[in-house]
């Protein structure tokens, strides 16, 4: 497999993992909103907390993690250099 194909495969897998986590925090937990609200998260009703703060925070952390790990993938495959215009 060429370097280019390897890089794209890793990039694609990284994208899929990231979107799986995104899917969990944006869709899956809200399928169970009513149940989630019966448990407490940080002392708030669960579903209320997640859509007021929890999911939002998860997305912020997720994108920073995504960007950092993608940079590592780029470096590994030798695409770390700055592009020229």
């Amino acid at each position: 497999m060429s370097n280019k194909e390897k890089h794209w495969m890793k990039t694609r897998n990284h994208m899929l993992v990231t979107l799986a986590i995104w899917f969990f925090f944006s869709i899956v937990i809200y399928l169970f909103g009513a149940d989630l609200n019966n448990i407490k998260i940080l002392g708030y009703p669960g579903a209320y907390y997640m859509c007021a703060q929890g999911s939002l925070l998860a997305f912020v952390i997720l994108i920073f993690w995504f960007a950092n790990r993608q940079e590592k993938i780029d470096d590994e495959c030798g695409y770390g250099g700055k592009e020229e215009d």
């Binding site: 944006s26 859509c51 999911s55 939002l56």
Partner: peptide, 18 residues
């Protein structure tokens, strides 16, 4: 209504990955 909070932040995951 708070679905909007989730939607208006979660969209950025799509922007950055896709």
């Amino acid at each position: 209504y708070m679905a909007l909070l989730v939607g208006w932040t979660g969209g950025y995951v799509l922007v950055s990955t896709l």
